[in-house]
Design a protein around this nucleic acid. Structure first.
Length: 431
DNA sequence: TCTGGGGTCCTAGGACCC
DNA sequence: TCTGGGGTCCTAGGACCC
């Protein structure tokens, strides 16, 4: 099942402010360079669409209410909906605040029986209206993620479509290639030049030909989806891969000192979000969009992960210094990727005094039980300070520091090597 | 004053290692 | 005395999604 909340941000605004009900509402950036996130159906009648510039939306529908997003309200409402879905099945994969897949095979449902499936879906839709204070959802049900997602789009808003098993290709064949997730304007144009516009066209192309046109991963994926072959599982817990903050400024920036200050603030924000989520990462990326919309990125990778605001800020400012910014900058952004789910503990800190008192008599020597966590600090008589790079099977691999970003020498030591002995294990949320 | 912000995934080339 | 074949990691950019 795929569930999609109708005009989500705008609907929440109409729910919370009754005077907006039945009227055109546009949620998005209201500044000079803002774009539309969501338009209510009333506003869509005037041609206002997601991703349209707010400037154009104002021209098309001047009497609409233009609102900045209130994410806390959307998050809170979204959580209520996700709870309803998790009551149906433990396998719920949120795609965003307003969308999720639910694996009905992991629910109470025992067969893909039309009446039973519809009954369940209508129950979910009613409960969503209930817990959200009146928001409607469009639901699609199919034998795969792909089909369910296509189905949820067929009868918006407030719709329910069940695609019968075995009828998938009848549905897909006449449709434009852009119904396939991953086929956007660039891919559609490539396909069009090869004479391919519908799913039926796509189905008649050999895999080799598709690989030639689109490359390995994309070509293979499309070959399968064009045949309605999709066995991707519903994944309830996907790990965060990166955290970033960016901003577009109403007028182009030209002052480097100002830009450095803005980048530093963004780095602080990224650091706060990393810490809130117990994350740290090794790669710091600076993103810059120039006055002419060309977009640059520069990144640097540390030897050890960080969640430190000053560190991220210093590296990001350094990357900014490498760029020619003549002509002005419209966007700056800072991100951290290469995330680890552990944080580099400060093992040099005061909270870990030398052992001395409190020896454990019964368990005098347990090198095998020592837990070496990747990222923890160690020290070696000759090589100096380093980090645990990998650990397992009684061997600890340590990378020693020569500079912050240049990898130093790597040494593997037995887990009970005296050179490692002074350092205490850390406990983490890991396995 | 055309063109957001938060993400994911893929590709291609070069460095580096065995 | 003219040069391998993996493999991984890093960087930069691009397509795409909501």
């Amino acid at each position: 099942m795929h569930l999609d909340l109708d005009a989500f941000f705008a609907s929440v605004e109409q729910r919370d402010k009754p005077s907006l009900r039945g009227k055109p509402v546009v949620v998005g950036g209201v500044g000079g360079r803002g774009v539309v996130s969501t338009a209510s159906y009333e506003a869509r009648r005037y041609g206002v669409r997601s991703a349209m510039s707010t400037r154009e939306a104002r021209a098309r529908c001047p009497h609409a209410a233009f609102l900045n997003p209130r994410f806390h309200a959307y998050r809170e409402t979204s959580q209520r909906v996700m709870e309803v879905l998790r009551d149906v099945s433990p396998l719920v994969e949120p795609l965003s605040l307003d969308e999720a897949f639910v694996d009905l095979a992991a629910s109470g449902l025992t067969s893909y029986d039309d009446a039973a499936v519809r009954g369940l879906a209508e129950e979910v839709r009613a409960r969503v209206v209930d817990v959200t204070g009146g928001l409607t959802a469009s639901v699609g049900i199919g034998t795969s993620k792909f089909i369910a997602k296509v189905a949820s789009d067929l009868d918006k808003p407030d719709g329910l479509v069940v695609v019968g098993a075995g009828t998938e290709l009848d549905l897909l064949r006449p449709m434009h290639v852009t119904v396939i997730p991953g086929v956007g304007p660039a891919t559609a144009e490539r396909l069009r030049r090869a004479g391919i516009t519908t799913v039926a066209d796509l189905e008649n192309v050999s895999e080799d030909e598709l690989l030639r046109i689109l490359g390995r991963a994309h070509g293979h994926g499309l070959f399968l989806l064009a045949r309605a072959q999709d066995d991707r599982p519903v994944e309830p817990e996907r790990e965060t891969k990166s955290v970033s903050v960016e901003g577009t400024y109403d007028t182009d920036l030209t002052d480097r000192r100002l830009m450095e200050g803005l980048v530093s603030r963004q780095a602080t924000h990224v650091s706060e979000r990393l810490r809130t989520n117990g994350l740290s990462g090794r790669t710091v990326t600076l993103k810059v969009r120039l006055h002419d919309f060309t977009t640059l990125s520069r990144s640097t990778t540390l030897n050890a992960p960080t969640d430190s605001g000053p560190t991220i800020a210093r590296l990001a400012r350094g990357l900014l210094g490498e760029l020619d910014l003549t002509g002005g900058v419209r966007l700056l952004g800072v991100g951290v990727s290469g995330l680890a789910d552990w944080i580099q503990d400060d093992l040099f800190g005061e909270q870990h005094p030398a052992e001395d008192d409190d020896p454990v008599e019964e368990l005098p020597d347990l090198p095998d039980l020592r837990i070496w966590v990747p990222g923890m600090d160690v020290v070696h008589e000759e090589l100096g300070r380093g980090w645990v790079w990998g650990a397992g099977r009684g061997i600890v691999t340590v990378r020693f520091e020569t500079s912050e970003t240049k990898p130093g020498p790597v040494r593997s030591l037995p887990a009970d090597d005296p050179a490692l002995a002074p350092w205490r294990p850390v406990t983490t949320g890991g396995p």
